[in-house]
Every structure is written in C-alpha cells, then in structure tokens.
C-alpha cells in the first residue's frame, strides 16, 4: 500500500481546451455535487470557494488575432516528484489532514482533521485549495438538497476537489456486491464535472488502465524523463501538456490543445526555453 503497485488505480483527467466553451457547467455541477456553499457575493474571490474553476486565457494579441481559451482547473492531484506520492500539500500538512492514496492516486482532504493553518494553500502551485472563512450558509430550504455522500465543511478548514471520491466509494460498493475484484468499467466511476460538460471536453479514467480513453489520449510515459528525473508520466501526445510540468509535481490533470500559445501558457518559460521544449516534444514524437 505504501507505494504504487500494478494493482493500483491512478485516476486522472484530460481536458480538451479546444472543446471547452467556458460555459461553467463543470463549476456548477461540482458545487452542487460536493455541497460547496454559495456566498452572498460570489465575485469576491477571497471568500468564494470553487473546487473547479474556469480560467480565461488569451493570446495577448490585438484584434483580429485575439484568441481566447478557457481552462478548467480542478485539484491537480499531484503524485509528487518521481511519482512517489509526495504532493506539495501532503508534504507540508502538519496535521496529516491530507494524504496521498497510493491505491487511487487521489489526494485526500479530511476536514475534521484540518485545523486551518493553510500551509497547504501556500504550498499548492495551482491555487486549488480554499479556506472556509465562514460557516456554510445555504439559502432557505436548500439544506435538504445537500448530498448525503459528502460531508459539509465548517469554518476554519481547507477544502478542495476530491475527484468526487464518494463516487469511487459507491462504485466500490457495487463492485463488492457483484463479487468482483476492482473497478474496471470506465463508466462506473466518473466525476460530476466530466458528466456535466456539454462539450465532452473532460475525459476521466484510470491512467493505469490501457482500455480507458484517458490513457489512450494521454499515453503517459511510465519512465522518468531523461533531462528531469522528477518528471514521470509525461504525455507522449505532442498536443497534451500539464500545468507547470517541469516542477515535477506530476499532476494527473492533463490538458490538450492544438494551439501552441495555449500550450506555452501551461508553464513559465524563459526566453528561448519554449522553443526548445516545443522542438523536443515535436522531434521525439515525429
């Protein structure tokens, strides 16, 4: 259990940014699925909580060359340097309120264990974690709409995307009932955002299962990269990239785009670095 093994799942996601229309359905689905409280002023980004957040990117060019791209950002579920499970947030949590599950590759967040130091929020390179400044307040009558499968959070704790882990738990119950060993069927466990996306831009599945669509699109390289041993699971698809990939956080959210400028925005490249990275990717995969 302490390390990745062949039996283990490695759930991940690939988001096609060329398909994403920025409609925000994933954000809405996520909030209602996971009992995320709505704030009086949702535009106050210091207070609002968005496990899944759609960012708007543009290519910074004047009309008529202006292009826009929307980038949905859930928790990236980092596997950490060398794929060993040392995610940035997990490494710093003094309360062990967040851990890396080697059997699913999911980074957990245990609200009852968290005491709100927010060290993890500082450590997360993706701003995926949110702090509850207030107790949740739902409009009258809405409490009865809450999902019983997700525990609501109180003020003073950090929360984040869990890859709809409760859905994995329910899928697992079905597997036990049917007397099977593990979840093989791709459709048995899907996140709320994946199902809500009207454009079908999000594909979710097990990156360790070659039958799953996500693996077929991403084609992750199981070996560490030659120039940076911290990076494992880099996509062999030249259109696919990860956010701040060179940090070695080894995120399990992959993004896909035909457009070069979008791929370039996935990391902070110094002058000349992007060309090198782009050529390298291009040459090694023809």
């Amino acid at each position: 259990m302490k390390q990745n093994n062949k039996q283990a799942h490695k759930f991940g996601m690939v988001i096609d940014l060329d398909k994403c229309t920025g409609c925000g359905s994933c954000m809405v689905a996520c909030m209602s699925e996971n009992n995320v409280p709505v704030k009086e002023d949702e535009s106050d980004k210091k207070d609002s909580i968005t496990w899944m957040r759609v960012y708007k990117l543009n290519n910074n060019k004047p009309f008529p060359e202006t292009e826009i791209c929307y980038l949905p950002r859930p928790c990236q579920h980092c596997s950490g340097k060398g794929d060993h499970g040392h995610s940035p947030c997990v490494s710093v949590c003094p309360a062990t309120a967040t851990d890396y599950d080697y059997s699913t590759g999911i980074v957990s967040q245990i609200y009852t264990r968290c005491f709100g130091c927010r060290y993890c929020m500082g450590a997360c390179p993706y701003h995926a974690r949110y702090f509850n400044w207030w107790d949740p307040k739902w409009p009258d009558g809405m409490e009865s709409y809450l999902s019983p499968n997700v525990s609501p959070r109180m003020r003073g704790v950090v929360e984040k995307c869990s890859f709809c882990f409760h859905r994995y738990q329910l899928a697992k119950e079905q597997v036990y009932y049917d007397g099977e060993e593990r979840i093989e069927d791709e459709a048995a466990y899907q996140t709320a955002c994946t199902q809500a996306c009207p454009a079908g831009a999000i594909v979710f599945g097990d990156l360790n299962n070659p039958d799953h669509q996500v693996t077929q699109i991403v084609k992750p390289n199981p070996h560490p990269e030659h120039d940076n041993h911290d990076v494992v699971g880099k996509s062999r698809n030249p259109k696919v990239f990860r956010l701040l990939e060179r940090l070695g956080t080894n995120t399990k959210i992959y993004y896909m785009s035909e457009r070069k400028w979008v791929r370039k925005l996935g990391d902070n490249y110094l002058d000349g670095e992007w060309e090198k990275a782009d050529n390298h990717h291009g040459s090694s995969h023809g």
Partner: peptide, 13 residues
C-alpha cells in the same frame, strides 16, 4: 486484517 490502516479517503468522505 489488511496489513495497512488504509488511506484517509478509504473511510472518510
């Protein structure tokens, strides 16, 4: 029984 206490998310939600 299983040799491991399991990850947090095994029993938490």
């Amino acid at each position: 029984e299983t040799g491991h206490q399991g990850a947090c998310f095994q029993c938490h939600k």
